[in-house]
Amino acid sequence: MMASIISLRGVSKYFGHFRALDDVTLDVMAGETLVVIGPSGSGKSTLIRCINRLETHDAGDIVVDGFTVGDTRQLATIRAETGMVFQNFNLFPHMSVLRNVALGPVRVRGLSWVEAEARARKLLVRVGLEAHVAKYPTQLSGGQQQRVGIARALAMEPKVLLFDEPTSALDPEMVGEVLDVMQGLARTGVTMVVVTHEMGFARRVADRILFMCEGRIVEQGPPTTLFDTPQDPRLRGFLQAVLSH
């Protein structure tokens, strides 16, 4: 039986008077790979950034793995249980690749540096970067940096992984290597919420796709249903626009 690991109930978020999220209700099941699509400005980033409280929601309730987002005493736990991968990688430029990955486990999980670096090495092998552990982020290609970003998120052994357009800043020839790593992760049973414009990936990997528009979830369903028989005219327009690229 699957249980909901992320739950949003009537969540709204305002930037000034602008409503970026409008009464969003959503359950993400443990182990599910949820892909979020939608036009620019539709609130996709805001949605996932509210889940780990990089943004604060103004109304409604968000619960992650039983912890209430917004309760300051539970913030540290929620941040530790949710890993995030950013569009621009946001690696720490003053630390080696190994340290980037080992830092969180040491500072947040209380591992020793030796334990954390052993864990980091394993993860870097898994994302194909064993040869680059001693380098600094700027010595790596974009695709390599993003794989470090994924390893850094995984090092916390989070229950939930949030991806905000992880391939949008990459040169086209590097998109594949990052998507491959993500596809591998989806099979491991970790819960993933992925904002992306990669429709091929969404179709192959997603358990469910969410289409957002103007801060609302307009339509959702399994990839085949959503891509092959879209109902909402806005979704049809969006799919036409992205697939004709």
Binding site: N52, L54, A76, R79, A80, T82, G83, M84, F86, N88, N90, L91, F92, P93, H94, L103, G104, R107, V108, R152, A153, M156
Partner: peptide, 27 residues
């Protein structure tokens, strides 16, 4: 220090003091 650095530090769960001493101040 770019905003993304603060966000990455928060996202991995670093305390405010650690965000400063590990990530922000060295940069």
């Amino acid at each position: 220090v770019p905003k993304g650095q603060f966000e990455a530090a928060r996202a991995i769960g670093l305390s405010s003091i650690r965000q400063m001493t590990d990530i922000v101040l060295p940069q």
